[in-house]
Computed example of a mutant assay.
Amino acid sequence: MLVLIGVLLVVLGFALRLNPLVVVTVAGIVTGFLGHLSVTAILNAFGNGFASSRSVTLFVLVLPVIGLIERFGLQEQGRRLIARLDGLTTGRLLVIYQFIRQVSSALGLASINGPAALVRPLIYPMAEGAAERRFGRALPEPMRERVKAFSASADTVGQFFGEDIFVAIGSILLITGFVDTTYHLKLDALDVALWAIPTAICAYVIHGTRLYLLDRRLGRMAEAAGISGRTDRTEAREAGR
């Protein structure tokens, strides 16, 4: 039971908001010593863990590319595109993106987009630009943070519930392997993927509704902040006149 002290160290480190990398490293070293592992065995465990999860570090290659395209005006181009699409509000844009994210993840293409690769440099600026076009001015900080949060949630929910439909995803293989080795039951990966479809549909409907209602929430926040923005319906009535 002493080896569980490493888990306690992780919980305490995260609760104290210490550096996650340092916390996990110290917890791993302490756990290794409590498990009577040698220094060489502990270093081998760290090396094997890094080698098996080295795809996690691919963001180091992506970040310079994102920095370059942002430097040369990707966000500005996204805002200009949104300015030309009068009927595309912040909520509607995020509903469409969540659908694209969920379908692409279900097809095994979860790595082609994401928070760092697409949401931060393009989707969020477009969502913010749609809100700024609606209210006719730059958004105050609370509204900007709200748009950021919902932009990230559209990506997260779309990937989380979409990728389980793909048969070869690691989570499905982990479930089938765990059930087979622990309970000695044969669980077909295709059955798990098929049963993930109703869950994905429910997730899209529930969170898609929240995204669609985001426009109303932004309108209430704008009223509370004293921003006199015109809604799409008002603009349509004025254009009809």
Rank of each mutant, 00 (worst) to 15 (best):
H184L: 11
G87Y: 12
Q75H: 02
S171P: 00
V26D: 06
F46A: 05
N48G: 11
V7Q: 00
S153H: 04
G177L: 11
A106R: 07
G158T: 01
V179D: 03
V192K: 01
A196M: 13
S171V: 13
V24H: 03
I96W: 11
A15S: 06
F135P: 07
T182F: 05
P64Y: 03
A168H: 14
I165Q: 13
S105T: 08
L213M: 12
F14E: 04
L139I: 09
G91W: 09
A222Y: 02
Q102E: 13
L187H: 03
T89H: 06
R217D: 11
A189P: 01
R210F: 15
R216V: 04
P142T: 10
L81I: 03
I5M: 00
L187A: 10
L37V: 01
L63G: 04
V179M: 04
A222G: 04
G73A: 09
I82P: 12
D164S: 14
Q77H: 01
G49M: 01
E128S: 10
L63P: 06
P142C: 03
A152S: 07
G219H: 08
A127Y: 11
A224C: 01
E238W: 10
I123H: 03
P125V: 07
I96F: 13
E145W: 07
F166Y: 11
A127F: 03
F46R: 07
M143S: 12
R137V: 00
F33E: 04
L173C: 01
T234N: 04
L190Y: 05
S105E: 02
M1Y: 08
R237S: 15
I227C: 00
L218A: 08
N44Y: 06
R101T: 15
S111Q: 12
R230K: 04
L218C: 05
F135K: 06
L194W: 10
T209W: 14
T31W: 12
V205D: 13
R133Y: 01
L9A: 03
H36D: 07
F161D: 09
R237Q: 15
P142N: 09
S153K: 00
G91D: 12
L12Q: 04
G28Q: 08
G78N: 09
G47E: 08
D155C: 10
G162D: 02
L139G: 09
